[in-house]
Design a protein around this nucleic acid. Structure first.
Lengths: 124, 124, 124, 124
DNA sequence: GTGGTCTAGACCACG
DNA sequence: GTGGTCTAGACCACG
């Protein structure tokens, strides 16, 4: 999976990496159990600091998205524990987006369309 | 309308203020043309610096959500120019949320429910 | 001549009044020697403070656009002393506008068109 | 590129900085992609506060003239999105200047000359 | 009384 | 080292 960084984004690089890996897992580009590149390899490939990649992996691990062991590096967690609930942060963020969309004259259906799409991708 | 700041959030205070005012406008708690508290009043009420409130207002102004005049302070803009399009940033953010929700086992309908709710509030 | 104030403009009200009167003189809506409304009358008509109108008139007087006498109030100066030169401030401001226009992809001809128009209006 | 501040101008310092950088980009003194001085460096060089420079940069960023990244500071944006339209504010300002120029006996051609010059500079 | 500007100085996250 | 955030406090123009 290709990870694409926007150097000029307000979102920190480690966060961008973390986000794209989560999205990759969700839409099936990264399979359960799949091996991730090593910190060093990814850092070199992207031309960034290893600390930055490492921070992204640490977050993914603490969130339960990946597993790491010293021998094999990191891989996508096979069985993810599903809380079944939307996090508070995401809930508020979603509400914010809906508010802005509505005020910009974006239709409800356009937002729903994006959601439908996100649940369709990588469907088994 | 009460504005509530989370001191432990990593979202800057001025951004939190900005977000809550936008959400207030969208859901009708702030009516078109309604007077906002003065910079000073809000700063005192919230126990923060006037510069911080001022920055929030200036962003809202530059985004077209509010108007300010020297005499009366700030008001919600009566007629807002609607771009009709979701911003790129919000689109990506929404996709990220959908990915995380899906991986947490949150149903598509729960997300759609939040959207429906956001479009219903303050409806005339 | 109708003077229209934008309460939400960053330009101070007295400056807006001053500008519109200068433009009125330039395009012929205000004739040389023509009587202006009294400070009081204009203030009441516009629903603003007399001090604000007074300040506008004082600037116009100091710039040589109008004459005032205690008896007759203010009127447009019949023979205006023409310096023949663009003020430094206006020259820089014009350069700024040209720079921004160019970077926005506005054609040279569009700017020239606005100038031609300004010199045509009220031509004798 | 040298930025020169007029302490006696009523144009705010951050606005003067912003204006001069825009003009520098337009006339080619600042090339696309070129590095700008860091906020701190420019503040020291000009003997002003970092907040003031920072505000100028943030405006330039929000207007799409520059990009900033955490590592390298600010650069002139390589490809600018061109609206193709003159802003309302600039249009009115231009009309005001034309009115004043005309009343001062400045010829139409002198104004056009300034425009031609502005579109010639930095031409490739 | 209103918002806007500016400073000195501290602290922070990112990389 | 970079930009970003926040504060306390001063001063200003406008109306």
């Amino acid at each position: 999976m290709v990870i694409r960084i926007d150097d000029y984004s307000d979102v920190p690089i480690y966060q961008q990496i973390r986000n794209q890996i989560v999205m990759g897992i969700s839409d099936g580009r990264l399979a359960a159990g799949e091996q991730l590149p090593t910190v060093r390899a990814l850092a070199i490939e992207m031309g960034i600091n290893t600390m930055t990649v490492s921070k992204a992996y640490q977050i993914l691990k603490s969130e339960g998205y990946i597993l790491t062991d010293r021998k094999n590096g990191a891989r996508v967690r096979p069985e993810m524990s599903k809380s079944g609930a939307l996090s508070d942060a995401n809930k508020w963020e979603l509400k914010r987006i809906v508010s802005e969309a509505r005020l910009s004259g974006v239709s409800k259906d356009e937002l729903i369309g994006i959601i439908e799409e996100g649940y369709k991708e990588g469907e088994k």
